[in-house]
C-alpha cells in the first residue's frame, strides 16, 4: 500500500467514525431537543420544529387540568419525597450496621440482597405484592406506594451506602469513643457527616426512580386524586387513546424539571458519585 492510499484510508476511517458518532448522539439528543421546543409550539407534532410563534398556550391549558396538576404538585411529591426519605434513612442505618457489626457473613448478605433484588424484578412480583398490600388494607394509599418502592430500592441503596460507610477509617469512630462519645453520638457526629454525599446520591436516585415509576402506583392506587404525574399524563390522551401532543409535551417538561433541579443541587453541593472515600 502506498503512503497516499494509507493516508486516504485513514482520513476516510476518521470521517466514517465521526459520522457514526454523530448519528449515535442524535439518537439521544433528538428527544431532549423535542422536549425543550415542542411545549412552546401550538402546532407541535412528533418532529423537532422551531416553534412559530413561541407560545405559552399549551401550559395554560395544562394548568386548567386540575387532576394532572394535583398529581404533579402533590401526589408525586408526597410519594417520591416520602420514598426518598425512607430509602435513605433505612439504607444508611442498614449499611452502617452491615459494615460495622461483628457479624459473620455480612458480605454474603450484602451481595445476596443485590443479586436477589435484580433477579426478582418488581413486575414479576406484582401479583404477590398486590395481594400483600390488599391484605394489609393499604390499597389506594400513598403509604402503599412508598413502602413498595422502598422495598424494591433498598437492596441497591444499601449496596451503594455500604461502600461509603466502609471508606470511613475505624480510627475515626474509635477516637470518638475514647473521647467519651456514646455509640449514637459517634454515628451522628462522625459517621453521618462523612457519608452525607452518599446519602444525597442515594436520595436523588430513589427520588428519580419513584418519580418516574408508573406500574406500581397504577396498580396500587384507585382514586384519581391520589395518582402521581406518571399516571396522570394519560389524562392528555383523547378517549380514542391518541395523545394530544402539544399538551403532553408541556406536561412532560414540567414533569422532568424537579428531577433536573434536584440533580443540579446535589451535584453542586456534594458532587455526584457512586463510590465512597473521604473528600476533605
Amino acid at each position: 500500500m502506498s503512503p497516499g492510499v494509507r493516508a486516504a484510508s485513514f482520513v476516510f476511517g476518521r470521517i466514517a467514525f465521526y459520522v457514526g458518532a454523530c448519528l449515535f448522539a442524535a439518537f439521544f439528543v433528538l428527544p431532549l431537543l423535542w422536549l425543550t421546543v415542542a411545549p412552546f409550539s401550538t402546532l407541535a407534532n412528533l418532529s423537532v420544529q422551531w416553534p412559530d410563534p413561541w407560545s405559552l398556550q399549551n401550559f395554560e391549558r395544562v394548568f386548567q387540568n386540575r387532576f394532572a396538576i394535583r398529581a404533579l404538585t402533590q401526589n408525586s411529591v408526597i410519594q417520591a419525597a416520602g420514598g426518598m426519605l425512607l430509602v435513605t434513612l433505612c439504607a444508611t442505618l442498614a449499611a452502617y450496621a452491615l459494615s460495622r457489626a461483628a457479624i459473620r457473613g455480612t458480605e454474603v448478605i450484602t451481595y445476596g440482597l443485590v443479586l436477589f433484588s435484580s433477579v426478582v424484578t418488581g413486575t414479576a412480583a406484582m401479583v404477590p405484592i398486590f395481594l400483600m398490600v390488599f391484605q394489609l388494607g393499604l390499597i389506594d394509599s400513598h403509604l402503599a406506594v412508598i413502602l413498595v418502592f422502598t422495598g424494591g430500592l433498598l437492596p441497591a441503596a444499601i449496596f451503594i451506602m455500604r461502600d461509603f460507610v466502609d471508606s470511613i477509617p475505624r480510627s475515626y469512630e474509635e477516637s470518638a469513643m475514647v473521647a467519651g462519645a456514646s455509640s449514637w453520638a459517634v454515628f451522628r457526629d462522625v459517621a453521618l457527616p462523612i457519608v452525607r454525599p452518599g446519602m444525597m446520591v442515594v436520595g436523588v436516585w430513589a427520588f428519580v426512580n419513584i418519580w418516574g415509576g408508573f406500574l406500581i402506583p397504577f396498580i396500587l392506587l384507585r382514586s384519581p386524586d391520589k395518582m402521581p404525574a406518571s399516571v396522570a399524563i394519560y389524562s392528555f390522551y383523547t378517549e380514542a387513546g391518541t395523545p394530544l401532543i402539544t399538551l403532553t409535551a408541556a406536561y412532560s417538561l414540567l414533569y422532568s424539571l424537579p428531577v433536573l433541579l434536584l440533580y443540579l443541587f446535589v451535584n453542586w453541593k456534594y458532587g455526584f458519585r457512586f463510590f465512597g472515600g473521604i473528600k476533605s
Binding site: 477509617p169 480510627s171 475515626y172 474509635e174 477516637s175 475514647v178 457527616p193 462523612i194 473528600k279 476533605s280
Partner: peptide, 14 residues
C-alpha cells in the same frame, strides 16, 4: 477518661 493519639491521627475531615 483516657486521651488517645492514633497512628493516622483520626482527625474528622468535616
Amino acid at each position: 477518661d483516657v486521651g488517645m493519639v492514633f497512628q493516622d491521627y483520626a482527625l474528622y475531615p468535616h
